[in-house]
Simulated scan of single mutants.
Amino acid sequence: MATGEVVLFWRNPTSDPDQDGEQVVTTTSTPATSRWCTSEDPLWPSGTFLSELPQGIRRNMLDLGIRDRFAPGERLMRENERDTHLVLLLSGLVKVTSCLGNGHEALLGIRVPGDVVGEMAALEETPRSATVTACSGTEVRVVSSAELRLFLVHHPEAAVTIYRTCARRLRRANRWRLEFGGFPVKVRLARALVELATAHGRKGWRGVIVGVDLSQSELAALIGSTKETVHKALAELRRDGVIETRCQYMTVHEERLRRVAQLERGAS
């Protein structure tokens, strides 16, 4: 695979990508090595909660709670429920969504192994602010609020890390809110693809693959648009040579994608 190319896979490879069928956008980018932990602890993608903990504290953290598994489509937690446990993701992918006042659903983010979900309710003992749903088979550790609080008292480095995680997510949400009003849909879509590639890329035989299956409807929810408008933007990206679709995958040319996203090289 040539440098600067990104591979995206489609959920239904037999469908015509120019039709209105649901398409999955699974993004990749290059290079990959800087996005993953060192060989000393290769399981946790860089930037995730577990990757930022010192090794000894991380090992202790992974002993907390109980192990559980969720099937694709199964909910780990539901918006407005009052349970207060935290979930550590060990494998699989989940999506975080919230219901809007008009009855639609907003996709707030994707979480990968090494991430935590439910931290706000666990720390504040308030109702859930979002729903978390497994996108694939997902293995987790479920940690009660009481056990988490005791652990954080004895391991202040973990407390700092979890608050840093909360702050980073809030900053990202604020940035997206500004971009919704400041950029057209095609730019927001390109930025979303760059961010997914940067955050969730892993090296595959044809490039750096992100195992995040997003339909056009989910992409639209992520960037605050409609499925029809996202469909049109994807068609324009194909026409302009930013992305290419083949039998089972899509290739995105990273430099062109960043130009469309109006991003400097290395920014995301």
Score class of each variant (00 low, 15 high):
residue 4 G to N: 01
residue 7 V to F: 07
residue 9 F to T: 07
residue 12 N to K: 08
residue 24 V to N: 14
residue 28 T to R: 12
residue 31 P to W: 07
residue 33 T to V: 11
residue 35 R to S: 11
residue 36 W to F: 09
residue 41 D to T: 03
residue 41 D to I: 03
residue 43 L to Y: 12
residue 52 E to H: 04
residue 53 L to A: 06
residue 57 I to Q: 11
residue 65 G to N: 01
residue 69 R to E: 15
residue 71 A to S: 13
residue 73 G to M: 04
residue 74 E to K: 11
residue 77 M to R: 05
residue 78 R to L: 14
residue 85 H to A: 09
residue 87 V to N: 05
residue 91 S to K: 03
residue 94 V to Y: 04
residue 94 V to S: 04
residue 96 V to G: 01
residue 97 T to M: 06
residue 99 C to H: 14
residue 101 G to C: 10
residue 101 G to Y: 12
residue 102 N to M: 04
residue 105 E to T: 13
residue 107 L to H: 06
residue 113 P to L: 06
residue 122 A to I: 02
residue 130 A to K: 00
residue 132 V to C: 05
residue 134 A to N: 08
residue 135 C to W: 09
residue 137 G to L: 13
residue 142 V to R: 09
residue 143 V to P: 08
residue 145 S to Y: 07
residue 146 A to D: 10
residue 148 L to W: 06
residue 148 L to Q: 02
residue 149 R to H: 13
residue 154 H to Q: 15
residue 157 E to C: 11
residue 157 E to H: 12
residue 162 I to S: 06
residue 163 Y to H: 14
residue 164 R to G: 08
residue 180 F to H: 14
residue 182 G to W: 01
residue 185 V to H: 02
residue 187 V to Y: 04
residue 188 R to G: 02
residue 190 A to F: 00
residue 193 L to E: 01
residue 200 H to S: 06
residue 202 R to V: 10
residue 202 R to W: 07
residue 208 V to P: 08
residue 210 V to Y: 10
residue 213 D to Q: 14
residue 217 S to M: 07
residue 218 E to R: 01
residue 219 L to T: 00
residue 220 A to Q: 00
residue 224 G to L: 00
residue 227 K to H: 00
residue 227 K to G: 00
residue 229 T to N: 11
residue 236 E to I: 09
residue 237 L to I: 01
residue 241 G to L: 04
residue 250 M to H: 13
residue 250 M to C: 15
residue 252 V to T: 11
residue 254 E to F: 02
residue 263 L to C: 05
residue 264 E to N: 14
residue 267 A to Y: 00
residue 267 A to M: 07
